[in-house]
């Protein structure tokens, strides 16, 4: 089965030369997750192996609609492919979580919470890529696309936090816990709230908001990987 995942990475890297090869790469990633899901009889969304792979495929899935709107498609596809490959490689280096889920994780709230979180992380990643392309090309259309990616990502992230709160209340009796992960999730949410508010002001439109969109993905990665790996919390891997 691992060959399917490896092939997807190869296709992503080949898409640096022929952009359309990103599609078979994506289909192979979906196939890998489907096979894993069927084997585990659940959505494969637990542990760094599954979540990094899911993030990698989400990044490509959300990049596809942007590919039809962006002027510099080649650069965009290349950047997304490289990031998706890096996440997929790190995923394959992590040990898969194959044991059955504890009863508390077998709920749609968990799947909604985690799925939407990674969709939003992927969109924040796309926003960062678009930010770099804007710095390179100074194309106004790219800045607008970055704003759209952040807006959709923010919406999904907010939904993920709300669903997470409802689930936490049903599972543990509180919708909020004082842990570094919850604080960083709030930091990430405040950061993108700041981006969306700042962009309403003329002096923040263009380069300043684009830079914020790039920094945001660094905050996203720390919230996802840094806090989970370095700090003790309810979300530790």
């Amino acid at each position: 089965m691992i060959i399917v995942a490896v092939l997807s990475i190869i296709f992503y890297l080949l898409s640096l030369y022929r952009g359309f090869l990103i599609y078979p790469g994506f289909l192979l990633q979906v196939a890998y997750m489907l096979i894993r899901g069927i084997q585990l009889e659940r959505l494969p969304l637990v542990g760094p192996h599954d979540t990094l792979f899911f993030l990698s495929s989400s990044l490509v899935a959300f990049a596809i609609p942007f590919m039809f709107s962006i002027n510099d498609e080649r650069q965009f596809v290349g950047s997304v492919s490289v990031i998706a490959s890096v996440f997929a490689i790190f995923s394959l280096l992590s040990r898969p979580h194959n044991i059955p889920l504890p009863p508390v994780l077998r709920t749609y709230w968990f799947e909604l919470h985690v799925g939407l979180s990674f969709f939003s992380y992927a969109l924040f990643g796309i926003a960062a890529v678009l930010g770099f392309l804007y710095i390179r090309n100074k194309d106004q259309e790219t800045e607008i696309l970055q704003y759209k990616a952040v807006l959709i990502g923010y919406c999904m992230f907010s939904l993920s936090m709300i669903f997470g709160g409802i689930w936490a209340y049903l599972a543990w009796g509180t919708y909020w816990l004082w842990t570094p992960k919850e604080l960083w999730t709030t930091i990430l949410w405040i950061f993108y709230s700041l981006y969306l508010h700042a962009r309403l002001r003329k002096e923040w439109m263009g380069m300043p908001s684009v830079v914020l969109g790039i920094i945001g993905f660094a905050v996203t990665l720390f919230t996802y990987l840094g806090v989970s790996l370095l700090m003790k919390s309810s979300h530790t891997f």
């Binding site: 004082w178 570094p180 604080l183 960083w184 709030t186 405040i190 950061f191 700041l194 923040w204 806090v227």
Partner: peptide, 19 residues
Amino acid sequence: IWLLLALLFMLLFGSLIMP
């Protein structure tokens, strides 16, 4: 905008102090 920025840094300090 400035209040959000200040709050962001306040929580960042908190996330370092807390553990």
